[in-house]
Design a binder for these strands. Sequence first.
DNA 1: AGCCAGGCTTGGT
DNA 2: ACCAAGCATGGC
Length: 314
Amino acid sequence: MAVTAPNPSSSSFSSSRSCSSSKESTTIVLPVRDYDLAATLDSGQAFRWRPAGHTWSGVVGRRWVRLTQVAGGIHAETAEPVADWQWLRDYLQTEVDLDVVLKLFPDDEPMRSAIAACRGLRVLRQDPWECLASFILSSNKQIVQIRQIIALLCERFGEPLNLPPTAIHPTTGGNTGSFCFPTPQCIVAATEAGLRACKMGFRAPHLLAAARRIADGQWDLERPRYLPLAEARAELMYLAGVGGKIADCVLLFAYGFDSAFPVDVWVERALRRLYFQRRRPTAKHLRSFAATHFGPHAGYAQQYLFHYMRTKLK
DNA sequence: AGCCAGGCTTGGT
DNA sequence: ACCAAGCATGGC
């Protein structure tokens, strides 16, 4: 199995990027090619993005953001002026050269089809806590329901955010997506009943327990970054409510382990259908196949299979 | 091992 | 139209 530590350069806080003389602004165009914004924001890796036409509004960290795919890049708008946009480049991973990733995919028919269908799909680099909490809440839920739970959680327990007047929706009253994702400290201050009221059911005690461990310092959100994949995975699985699949999601979507390969039902279906036809591999066999077959960017390949299966193969 | 725990979507009838 | 199955995890 490839044990690939996160590539520091792809989460770079590039020292060459001077911001000493940069002006503050509420808009920017991040230049990028090979980027399918809609596929990326709507492929089950993040749950707070809302489409309105061809623009997407959401929250990254403590900032409300509206994104639009434009010729040559991604147009971004924030509510408050920004001097240094590196946080958004990191989140969207616009500095990753997709060609390099796709060239290392296995050269087989299923991957060629998936690339043809989803080219431009990216893996985001999300905040570890939001990602961990979101995927604890994802267990045994479908994407629409996960979005609902997280929207309720943010409205009820997250800090309100500033919005530009243009973001106020005339019919809904406009506070959708205008809350921070609640910090561990916010969650700790909640009760299990209050969390259950966000429709998360049996996941409530898991979320609360994880928040407590993190808030009181027993579990360090930064530690997995510096561990080999297998150890980082074990750390995550030490938390209640985090099994192998959810651990792999957090490793891939937050910590940048490109070789982490989450296998959910959709990916399992894709693997069975595209690589195993009518045979019946065990889950263990599928995992070992995935670990050896898809190379250093297996997680990226997984995202392509996932999106391809959901949007094109059904 | 097999069942249960929210609740919403999907698929079969 | 209805009703069962699926979903990913941990605890019993």
